[in-house]
Design a protein around this nucleic acid. Structure first.
Lengths: 198, 198
DNA sequence: AATCAACGTTACCGATCGGTACAACTTAAA
DNA sequence: TTTAAGTTGTACCGATCGGTAACGTTGATT
């Protein structure tokens, strides 16, 4: 049996994240979660608290390891604004489509559950904040980037950011429905065209 | 108590549709469904069969009464192509945002559950077909409409239809997250711009 | 060597899940 | 008026939900 932990907290959390990503918060059962994590229920409760706490930690992990890294494309030196935006969008949509993970976006999927009324308050706030960060990051770029200012995009930064964020929600939904990356890339092209880029 | 049915099938089905629209398929419990329908479980099972059959009927009702009517805007006589598309998109997004119904789109929401693996086959097929109809209707317009052909949009009808369908999925997700109609209207404008219209 | 905290396993808790058997009752037809 | 079909309400079914108590085992500390 044991006396020292026989599993890796980080690996277990990653597995739990995968289950939530595939099934959502309410749809992920403790049985499936613990089975995927390779541990049993008492170990899970000792290590993470309860389902809600586990979900919060899984969400934070997703934000840190799967969502935030894409933002780097927005501030890459020596790359034009258009290319930076395109790289960012393509990077996000690529992850929405990869077969290594469940299709779609963890945040958008679970945020859709909030309107059901079955999502506790703390996870709800975390998901809302996370989705808001996307628009905030885009607003920041379009407001302060010299190239964006030269193009006059700073005067409607919020509107443009909303458009791109909406596109990313749409591609996430499409990816979850099985639409391949190749088709969604053309959606990105048209989306950039719509806001006056490319 | 009775011998003749004491409730209206159509009203009950509409109530059930509202619950599925808010909670999704798996998230809608028989208790909440029957309570909203104003009947008890045996009456529901006798009238509609089971939860899956009820969901199928509710989905068909949504398609017929809430989704199909928007298509009329696409074929309105004496209206320019741009305006027809814009009217269609605005009509759909308006319904996604109205406070009379749950926010978002019934089809897109429930289709997202398919990837969880918990959605039976018949409802899955119905939802996939319904979402495909949107793109089909748009492809049809961009392929055969004289104005579209004159603009050369017929050569990339599928791509354009995918863009607009993606936008509608994005706005549905945004609406469910609480973004108001006024902001999403500007998203429609930019989206039309991206495909070469307006 | 003795102690104790942490671990894994099992078995269980009350609540809720989708679904149903059954009895009481009402209506229409015979 | 009797009968048969149809409807409602209650009470229940086995399964699963999130969560936990209890027990035996293990390893580090003293």
């Amino acid at each position: 049996m044991s006396g020292k932990r026989t599993f890796d907290d980080e690996k277990a959390l990653e597995s739990a994240m995968g289950v939530f990503w595939k099934k959502g918060y309410a749809g992920a059962s403790l049985a499936e979660l613990t089975q995927s994590m390779g541990i049993n229920k008492p170990s899970m409760y000792r290590t993470f608290g309860n389902k809600e706490a586990l979900f919060i930690k899984a969400t934070q992990r997703y934000i840190e390891k799967n969502a935030q890294p894409h933002f780097a494309h927005l501030h890459q030196d020596g790359v034009s604004l258009v290319q930076r935006i395109k790289h960012y969008m393509t990077s996000v949509v690529s992850e929405q489509c990869t077969s290594e993970n469940p299709k779609g976006c963890f945040i958008f999927l679970c945020q859709g559950e909030i309107a059901s009324g079955d999502m506790p308050e703390l996870p709800s706030n975390l998901l809302n904040q996370a989705s808001q960060k996307i628009q905030d990051a885009l607003v920041e770029v379009f407001s302060h980037d010299p190239e964006a200012i030269k193009l006059g995009l700073n005067t409607r930064a919020a509107s443009i950011a909303l458009c791109l964020a909406t596109t990313l929600r749409g591609t996430a939904s499409m990816a979850r429905a099985g639409v391949p990356l190749s088709e969604l890339k053309t959606v990105i092209e048209h989306s950039l065209r719509g806001i006056g880029l490319s």
